Amino acid sequence: MKRVGLYFGTFNPIHIGHMVLANHMVEFSDLDEVWLVVTPQSPFKTKKSLLDNHHRYQMVFEATKDFPKLKPSKIEFDLPQPNYTINTLVHLEEKYGVAFQFCLIMGEDNLKGFHKWKNYEAILENYDLYVYPRVSEGIVEHQFKDHPKIHHVAAPIMEISSTFIRKNHKEGKNIRSMLPENVWQYLDEMNFYR
């Protein structure tokens, strides 16, 4: 049975920080694959800066196509919105049965608020969490501190954000080095974030 880490994000756009983190998780933990799950735009929230689901998925596809252990996923696109992680996990279990053992990948900042997630107890009972460090987020000092299902992975800390990339690209700055080459070509060709 393959262990699959689910790395959720809007990936607007996917950048080298996402790629370094996803690749680190699959190479330096017991995960066999990492699926980069593109979070759909909520029909209740329309952000002008958020690209269409298809374009964000395409950029994740472009970024991961040369990395056999990293897979793009649009599994949430067909689920009712607003969607919750527990619903996605149940859907994946129904779709794939026992072929995969799914795990969640999250930053320390998300772990701090994990107790506010819908059905977080059920998630923690049935799924492992792989947590990567975030700058100046401090140490998690609460009920999850030494939990056996929570694995802290000493992944590199990447101080790059999609917001920073979008803002500076719009201002005419060269942000090409922050993106996988295929993503840069797609973004440039489609004239996104101008």
Rank of each mutant, 00 (worst) to 15 (best):
Y57F: 14
M59V: 07
F61W: 07
A63Y: 01
D66G: 13
L70H: 01
P72T: 06
P72Y: 08
S73V: 07
K74F: 09
I75F: 13
I75E: 09
E76R: 06
D78K: 14
P80K: 12
P80S: 08
P80V: 10
Q81C: 08
N83L: 11
N83P: 01
N83Y: 04
I86R: 06
N87W: 10
T88A: 02
T88H: 04
L89M: 05
V90R: 12
E93P: 00
Y96S: 06
G97I: 13
A99Y: 13
F100W: 06
L104G: 06
L104N: 07
M106I: 13
G107Q: 09
N110W: 04
L111N: 01
K112N: 08
K112V: 12
H115R: 13
H115C: 11
W117E: 02
K118G: 03
K118W: 10
Y120R: 10
Y127I: 12
D128T: 08
E137T: 15
E137I: 15
V140K: 03
E141T: 12
E141C: 06
K145C: 01
A154I: 15
P156L: 06
I157N: 00
I157Q: 02
M158P: 00
I160E: 02
S161P: 02
S162R: 07
F164P: 00
I165W: 05
I165P: 00
N168W: 07
H169P: 01
H169M: 13
